[in-house]
Design a protein around this nucleic acid. Structure first.
Length: 334
DNA sequence: AGGGCCGGATTC
DNA sequence: GAATCCGGCCCT
């Protein structure tokens, strides 16, 4: 039986461009959601000696990074200190970083820069130190709402009295993630790739096997597991995989599908498409500061990458494709 | 209408 | 040539 208390928890991810460092003058624009007082950040510490201070310092520079292989490698010890977790200790794999080379590539895509979760009590956003912790919280966000108290696990001094770690502003794109997504199996990585604005989809989810192989659908995962039974460890199930992608809060980020013409009424026939629907970078407006609660969803912030020209290309498709969705993973061997 | 899925264009 | 990204078919 489920708990009777609602769980207005939300988790957020801050996304950023791969090749660009965020640098904003400030970050604490505490919204008066529940805390009209103490909206300004207190005097910052001089030297980051605690995980809390590390987070603060990251916040100051808008570079709070939760999942960034490169940064994690650099920050090493500090990052580990900030990420004092007592679960999945053997999940720290060393997989090739997913960051794209940014030497001179015109392609600029947003990427996850930070993870945050909303306290179910004070409704303030708290940064999550690591992707793994984020995934842990997300997995049980419905049954186990997040509170600032929970953040004491890695930030002993945090409490609901502290100002929010991050608030929504127009510089990022916020996206709602799905709750209760299972953590990837040990040795596996769940990768989220944000698409450029104007694409037909917001993002793609990949699972990277311990071997490094990337799978982009349940079908591919199943095939891979069948072909590589060595990864079919006991307890592994397809329920540990989810290709659910977050949804952008700005609806204009993703290209809208052409509405199905409904010719049932003559009145509709006279209706014409409005040019505003094709308005580029319309979501860049600052009106996205409104955050709606109500569902324990996760959210992500994204930097607007760039108005990448949409490549359009007619494509043919072989209609002879058939996939068997009834495949089920079993531990049978050959 | 939304999402899973994958072909193929694009980039490295 | 390999990896990545995007379009869009097609199923639910």
């Amino acid at each position: 039986m489920e708990s009777t208390t609602p769980s207005p928890c939300k988790i957020t991810l801050k996304l950023r461009r791969d090749d660009e460092q965020e640098q904003e003058p400030k970050t604490n624009d505490d919204k008066p959601a529940q805390s009209p007082s103490s909206s300004s950040v207190s005097s910052p510490p001089s030297s980051p000696s605690s995980s809390d201070e590390i987070l603060q310092s990251h916040l100051q520079s808008q570079e709070l990074v939760l999942y960034d292989p490169a940064v994690a490698a650099n920050a090493g010890g500090d990052a580990n200190r900030a990420a004092t977790v007592n679960r999945i200790p053997n999940l720290n794999k060393s997989i090739s970083p997913v960051s794209v080379s940014n030497s001179q590539g015109p392609r600029v895509l947003p990427s996850v820069g930070a993870f945050t979760v909303q306290c179910a009590n004070c409704f303030k956003w708290r940064l999550i130190p690591t992707k793994e912790q984020y995934e842990q919280i997300r997995e049980h966000i419905l049954e186990r709402p997040f509170y600032c108290e929970t953040a004491k696990e890695w930030r002993p001094s945090i409490s609901c009295d502290d100002p929010a770690d991050i608030t929504q502003d127009g510089s990022r794109l916020w996206a709602i993630d799905r709750p209760n997504i299972a953590q990837p199996p040990p040795g596996w990585q769940r990768l989220l790739r944000i698409r450029g604005e104007g694409s037909t989809k917001f993002a793609d989810v990949y699972y990277q096997a311990p071997s490094g192989k990337r799978l982009r659908s349940m079908v591919e995962v199943q095939k891979y597991l069948i072909e590589h039974p060595e990864y079919m460890v006991d307890g592994l199930s397809m329920a540990q995989f989810s290709f659910q992608i977050p949804r952008p809060l700005q609806e204009n980020y993703v290209r809208k599908r052409p509405a199905a013409p409904r010719l049932t009424a003559a009145a509709h026939a006279s209706r014409t498409l409005e040019p505003t629907e094709a308005n580029p970078i319309a979501w860049a407006g600052p009106d996205d500061t409104e955050l709606q609660l109500g569902s324990p969803y996760l959210e992500a912030h994204v930097f607007d990458p760039v108005g990448r020209p949409t490549k359009k290309r007619a494509k043919t498709r072989t209609p002879s494709r058939v996939y068997n969705s009834n495949l089920n993973i079993s531990t049978e061997s050959s």
